[in-house]
């Protein structure tokens, strides 16, 4: 079992547990539609009641993402949302929000930025941690060391295809929470929550005391409610990104705040 650290994500989940409430984790891609909007959107998502925010770093080859986040990634790249620019602006963005921010990224941008430099600058920018989608526990040693040195959380993912042996290997490396992928596949909205999720939650509980957040395919309050019946939090990504696509131009940050508030109904919190 991991030693209990005292990061901002830990305290956020502790606070939720004390209130017997469930968490809502919201993903959005930086630079979508522009870097300037990202500041406004983060504030709106925070006001809407997100407990933790995953800020996506656009990547040219997002092979774990479905079409919605692929499009967001392309818009982000077009608007110049490099890791360096994101880290540069994050302190200003964070002034208007309290929800901890995790950088959600593929490995290559972090690798090119430099692992130690990334951890140092992320900590300086006020990020709570990172989740690197294509970094397997087997290859993560230097990354984890760099992140630990800055007291940053390293969130890892577990999938329905993860064997008990794999859960045993990856769960101890995760801090803050463990991200459960609800079903095999890429990110994106689905009509139904996979039947594979239940057994995964059960197995994950045997390997970690960390809060469990479920993502991939969670897109409305009903699904938030469904997955948080057994898990501690729901992650909504593609549905939020689609809301930005559909409603932001006309409705501005308020429309996104309302969307998050609507999703939050699924957590049972007012």
């Amino acid at each position: 079992m991991p030693t209990i650290s005292k990061t901002r994500i830990d305290s956020r989940f502790r606070e939720l547990a004390e209130r017997k409430a469930k968490g809502l984790v919201i993903y959005l891609t930086a630079g979508d539609p522009t870097l300037e909007d990202t500041g406004k959107l983060l504030a709106a998502v925070n006001r809407g009641g997100a407990d933790v925010i995953e800020l996506g770093v656009p990547f040219s080859d997002p092979l774990a993402d479905g079409p919605v986040i692929q499009r967001a990634s392309e818009r982000g790249l077009k608007s110049g949302a490099s890791l360096a620019r994101i880290l540069e602006r994050l302190p200003r963005w964070r002034q208007e929000m309290e929800a901890p921010v995790i950088l959600f990224t593929y490995y290559n941008p972090v690798l090119q930025y430099g692992l130690e430099r990334f951890a140092r600058d992320a900590a300086r920018a006020g990020a709570a941690g990172a989740l690197v989608l294509d970094l397997t526990p087997e290859e993560a040693e230097s990354y984890i060391a760099a992140m630990r040195a800055q007291s940053l959380d390293t969130v890892f993912l577990a999938a329905p295809t993860s064997t008990d042996e794999r859960l045993e290997r990856l769960a101890p490396l995760s801090t803050g929470f463990l991200y459960l992928i609800s079903r095999p596949g890429t990110t994106g909205e689905r009509n139904e929550i996979s039947r594979e999720l239940g057994p995964l939650i059960e197995r994950a509980r045997r390997h970690t005391e960390l809060p469990l957040a479920v993502g991939f395919g969670v897109s409305n309050p009903e699904q938030v409610r469904e997955v948080t019946k057994d898990a501690d939090a729901a992650v909504v990504g593609s549905a939020l990104v689609r809301a930005i696509e559909d409603r932001y131009a006309a409705g501005g940050p308020d429309a996104i705040e309302h969307f998050v508030r609507w999703l939050r109904e699924g957590t049972g919190a007012a």
Partner: peptide
């Protein structure tokens, strides 16, 4: 054993693909 050719190679994939 880790699939490394010197420093190159390895495995960098989403967790879902690790078991397959």
């Amino acid at each position: 054993a880790r699939g490394r050719f010197g420093e190159f190679g390895g495995r960098f994939v989403p967790e879902t693909l690790m078991h397959p």
